[in-house]
């Protein structure tokens, strides 16, 4: 097993600054996400987490700094640029259209076209397969309007929308904030499965139990600055809370890297279909044939 610190991050931001008018929200931020790992992004309300994510997504242009993807600098000016790289974001405010149904939301902006009309059956079929594989069993119809779904269902639809495409980095902004116990556990399980499948997952959460349960590393923002980037395995609940509330931790170590927290984190090979491992073993063999070019 390769130590993840020996690898290059798939996504890295260096020295990023971002202001809204006179208010500087991000100061010289460094942030990295690694394939096959869950990186937790924590910080108090207003620390700048959502802003950082929107910069990564191309919604807000960065004022200065470098955006690196797969080790190379890239320009991301619009959500299209980000999704072209394989970066997908599940927003805190879910960014679903209430007046559209599940299928229409999943394919929004990337509708499949038939000869004369949109390929509705094709899109519905893919929706059915994706949601089935995400273990969504509670929706009665894929043609249900999103307005009629519960919070947990909507969150799952939002996540499905991100992984339906060949994404390499999935960023989840407080995915469990509005969920009950059982639905939270389901979403966290889904988060782990995405990482195990080789995706770089970034999880924003205010819930330290969630962070400790699923993340491999923690990046703490304090008033728009990175207070620390630490291994989850090397830190404790109280240290993270200290970083969040004061921006420093007396005992925080940025010391020598340890091996990954989760022994089961597989090192993805570059050519493997990223989502194949989410599936039951029987299904993953089939999907590897349609994932990547030979």
């Amino acid at each position: 097993m390769t130590d993840s610190l020996d690898r290059d991050p798939i996504l890295e931001l260096r020295g990023v600054n971002k202001s809204f008018g006179a208010v500087q929200v991000l100061h010289d931020v460094h942030f990295a996400a690694y394939s096959g790992e869950v990186t937790a992004l924590v910080g108090d309300n207003g620390a700048g987490k959502s802003t950082l994510v929107k910069c990564i997504a191309g919604i807000h242009p960065i004022d200065s700094g470098t955006y690196l993807f797969n080790g190379g600098p890239v320009n991301v000016h619009s959500p299209r640029d980000a999704s072209a790289l394989g970066v997908e974001i599940v927003y805190q405010d879910l960014a679903l259209c209430n007046n559209l149904d599940i299928v229409q939301n999943l394919f929004l902006g990337r509708e499949k076209r038939g000869r004369f009309v949109l390929d509705e059956p094709g899109m519905e079929e893919l929706t059915a397969r994706t949601l089935t594989n995400l273990s969504v069993r509670t929706v009665t119809s894929f043609r249900q309007k999103v307005a009629s779904l519960s919070g947990g269902q909507r969150q799952t639809i939002a996540i499905a929308k991100a992984v339906l495409w060949n994404s390499k980095v999935v960023i989840l902004d407080e995915p469990t904030a509005a969920l009950g116990v059982a639905q939270t556990a389901q979403v966290l399980e889904l988060v782990r499965r995405l990482a195990r499948a080789g995706l770089a997952v970034v999880l924003i959460s205010h819930n330290m139990n969630d962070v400790l349960a699923v993340s491999d590393r923690v990046c703490a923002l304090y008033l728009g600055r990175v207070a620390a980037e630490v291994r989850t395995a090397e830190t404790t609940h109280s240290q993270i809370v200290e970083l969040i509330t004061t921006g420093q931790s007396g005992t925080s170590q940025k010391g020598p890297p340890l091996s990954p927290h989760h022994a089961d984190v597989a090192t993805p090979t570059a050519a493997a279909p990223v989502v194949a491992d989410i599936l039951p073993p029987a299904a993953s063999a089939a999907s590897s044939s349609n994932g990547e070019p030979g």
Binding site: G86, N166, A282
Partner: peptide, 22 residues
């Protein structure tokens, strides 16, 4: 890669829940 959705699938596992109204 990006223009094509990558289904988390292949064959639908026989045991998995079928599409609700399939």
């Amino acid at each position: 890669l990006v223009d094509q959705p990558v289904p988390l699938n292949g064959e639908m596992p026989p045991t998995a829940a079928r599409a609700p109204a399939a």
